[in-house]
């Protein structure tokens, strides 16, 4: 993805990130103080699970395009550029997997609580 597409997706994902952060902050403010079980239930509810999943997808996508832009601007020797892109991709992927693991864990714990 490059040129107009990268630029457009950067803006779309950025917009979603802003909207989701507002949603999250308002939820926390209006339900303050939040207990752990309340928070867990919120995270595990189907709509929020989709919203949070989309948030992390947008976040890593946004970070990939933005990080790649910085590398394209500043790092010119091909070997260094390739190396930094690989490091960026691997670290973003690792964080994405980690985020997914946490979300699945929250869902599983919530399921166990309901089952009990």
């Amino acid at each position: 993805m490059q040129g107009l597409n990268a630029w457009l997706w950067q803006r779309l994902s950025g917009t979603y990130l802003a909207i989701f952060i507002f949603y999250l902050v308002f939820y926390i403010l209006f339900n303050f103080p939040l207990s752990f079980s309340q928070w867990l239930a919120w995270v595990a509810s189907p709509i929020n699970r989709i919203a949070i999943g989309l948030f992390f997808l947008s976040l890593f996508f946004h970070a990939w395009i933005g990080g790649r832009d910085v590398i394209l601007d500043y790092i010119h020797p091909p070997a260094w550029r390739f190396f930094s892109l690989v490091v960026l991709a691997i670290s973003l992927l690792a964080m994405a997997l980690w985020a997914m693991q946490i979300l699945f864990w929250a869902y599983a714990v919530q399921g166990m609580i309901q089952w009990q």
Binding site: G3, L4, L72
Partner: peptide, 11 residues
């Protein structure tokens, strides 16, 4: 112009 550098290096 739809190219990674020509326009889109403008921030």
């Amino acid at each position: 112009l739809n190219h990674p550098y020509k326009v889109f290096r403008c921030h």
